[in-house]
Every structure is written in C-alpha cells, then in structure tokens.
Simulated scan of single mutants.
Amino acid sequence: MSPLNTIHLYQIFKNLDKNGDGLVSIDELMWLLERIGIQCRRDELELLVGDKALDTMDFLFFYETLVIKGSNFYQEKCKVEGEDQILESDLRKAFRVFDLNDDGFISSEELQIALSRLGLWDEQDCEHMIGVYDTNKDGLLDFEEFKDMMCA
C-alpha cells in the first residue's frame, strides 16, 4: 500500500477525535492501534507521544515519525537474520486485520472494508493497490505477497 497523504491523515484524525475537541487522546490512539492489531501498553504510547493528546499538527508529525522509523524498522528486520520469527509473527497479525474471512487471502473487497473500518478508505482503487504486489495475478494477496509489500 502507498503511504497516506495529508487528506487521508486529516480524515483519520477527524474519525479518531470521537469527542470533537480537536485532539486525539491516548485512549483514541490505543483504540486505533488495537483495531489494526498492534498491541501497545499505555505507558509506552504516552512515552512515544510525549503528551496526553495530539492536535492535528502533532498527529501528522507522529505519523511521519512512525512511517520513517517504521519503514526503516521493517526493512531492517527483513534483512537481519534471526529476526525472522518476530517479523513473521508481527506480519501475520497485520495480515489477519485485512483477511476478514480468514481464507488466507486479502481481496480488494476485504481491503476496502478494513480501510473503511479504520477510516482510511476514500474510494481508493483497492484492486490497483493489490495489483502492485500480486505477483501471481490472481487478484488476491496471499501472505507472502503481503510480506513482500511490507518489506518493500
């Protein structure tokens, strides 16, 4: 999948800001992370965020930090031997977030539903998103194709 643009991030921020106060709280961030299958302790997230809540600019910065560090993190983990078991476990958890019917494949419909639930779908072409990493051209992402996408 491609990185999110500013419009997507504002939409996510708006959807996360459940009480409409212009801030995304630690609780609201925890909710998002749990929805996408990431387990994080509250105190760890507070340390990472450095505050009790994020305004839109802080949220954008938080995302950029995660994308840059996260991208490097996954790329390094993909290259480092001995980390394969941890990476595999993390990626399987992430894969299950999108494989809604648990058949071992992510279809464009499942991708659309999962992105919608996360407040990320704005009529993006999910078939095209899948097609970029669908090496066997069956219209679905299997786990290996998903792993290639995440380690790209």
Rank of each mutant, 00 (worst) to 15 (best):
M1C: 03
S2T: 08
L4R: 08
L4K: 03
N5M: 05
I7K: 14
I7H: 12
I7R: 13
Y10L: 13
Q11G: 15
I12G: 03
I12E: 04
I12D: 01
K14D: 13
K14H: 14
K14Q: 13
L16F: 08
D17E: 05
K18H: 06
K18P: 05
K18V: 09
G20P: 11
G20T: 01
G22I: 06
G22N: 12
G22F: 08
L23G: 08
L23P: 11
V24C: 08
S25K: 01
I26Y: 00
E28M: 06
E34H: 09
R35N: 11
G37R: 02
C40R: 03
C40S: 04
R41N: 00
R42P: 00
E44R: 00
E44I: 00
L45G: 02
E46Q: 04
E46H: 00
L48W: 00
L48R: 01
V49S: 01
G50S: 06
G50Q: 02
D51T: 02
A53F: 03
L54C: 03
D55I: 11
F59A: 07
F59W: 02
F59M: 04
L60C: 14
E64S: 15
E64I: 10
T65A: 05
T65M: 05
L66A: 08
L66N: 07
K69C: 07
K69R: 12
N72M: 13
F73T: 12
F73P: 07
Y74A: 09
Q75S: 13
E76Q: 12
K79A: 14
K79M: 12
G82H: 08
E83M: 14
D84N: 14
Q85Y: 15
Q85H: 13
I86E: 15
L87Q: 05
L87K: 02
K93L: 10
A94E: 02
F95Y: 03
F95K: 00
F95W: 02
F98W: 03
L100P: 06
N101V: 12
D102I: 12
D102G: 10
D103V: 12
D103M: 04
F105V: 08
F105T: 10
I106K: 03
S107N: 05
S107P: 06
S107Y: 05
S108V: 10
E109P: 13
Q112K: 14
Q112D: 09
Q112P: 10
Q112M: 11
Q112R: 15
I113K: 06
I113R: 03
I113P: 01
I113M: 10
A114F: 08
A114S: 13
R117G: 15
R117S: 14
L118M: 07
G119P: 08
G119D: 04
L120E: 02
L120K: 04
D122A: 15
D122L: 15
Q124C: 05
D125I: 08
D125L: 07
E127I: 10
H128Y: 13
I130K: 01
V132R: 13
V132N: 07
V132Y: 07
Y133A: 10
T135V: 14
N136F: 06
K137Q: 10
K137I: 04
K137V: 10
K137T: 08
G139E: 00
G139S: 00
G139W: 00
G139K: 00
L141S: 11
L141H: 03
L141E: 05
L141N: 04
D142S: 09
D142Q: 07
F143E: 10
E144R: 13
E144G: 10
E145I: 10
D148E: 09
M149G: 10
M150H: 03
